Simulated assay, not measured.
Amino acid sequence: MNTVSLTLLPSMSSLLSPLLAAVLLTSTAAMAAPAGAGPAAKAGQEAACGGFPRADNGPHDYRTVRDKRLSIVEQYHFTPSVEMLIKGSSSQDLAGDISFMLRAFPNHHRALMSIVRLGERTRSEQPRGSAFTVDCWLERATRFAPDDAVARMIYAGYLNKRGRAQDALVQMDRVAAVAGDSAFTHYNAGLILIEMKQYERALAHAHKAYALGFSRLDLREKLQSAGQWKDPPDAAATAPAPAASAAAAASAASPASAP
Rank of each mutant, 00 (worst) to 15 (best):
Y76D: 13
S90C: 08
I86F: 03
R128M: 04
L118I: 11
S130D: 07
M101L: 08
W137T: 09
I86R: 15
D97F: 11
A111I: 05
T133C: 08
A141C: 02
A145K: 05
A149G: 01
R103C: 02
K87H: 14
A111Q: 05
R140N: 14
L85F: 04
S71W: 13
E125K: 00
M84A: 15
T133F: 12
R103F: 07
Q75Y: 13
T133H: 11
F132A: 06
F105L: 06
I98V: 14
D147Y: 01
V82C: 00
R123V: 01
D93Y: 03
C136S: 13
H109P: 00
S124A: 12
F78S: 06
A145T: 15
A141D: 01
A145M: 08
A95G: 13
S90A: 14
I115C: 09
T122V: 03
I72F: 09
C136P: 06
M113D: 14
D93N: 10
S81Q: 12
Q126H: 02
V73W: 07
R143I: 08
M101G: 01
I72K: 14
L112C: 09
A111R: 07
F105Q: 05
C136Y: 10
L94P: 00
I98A: 12
A95R: 11
A151K: 05
S130V: 03
G119I: 11
A145G: 05
G119H: 09
H109R: 06
P127T: 01
V134N: 13
R121D: 02
A95F: 13
A131D: 15
S89Y: 12
N107G: 07
E139N: 12
A131V: 10
E139H: 07
E120I: 06
F132S: 13
H109Y: 08
V134K: 11
A111N: 05
Q92C: 01
R128Y: 01
S99E: 07
L94H: 00
I86E: 14
A111K: 05
D135F: 09
A145I: 11
R123M: 02
M113V: 07
L112M: 14
S71L: 11
R140I: 11
F144A: 09
S89D: 15
R121Y: 02
T142A: 14
L102S: 11
H108C: 05
R103M: 06
Q92G: 15
A104D: 13
G129C: 04
A145W: 03
A149M: 09
G129E: 02
D97Y: 10
S99W: 04
P106W: 11
E74A: 14
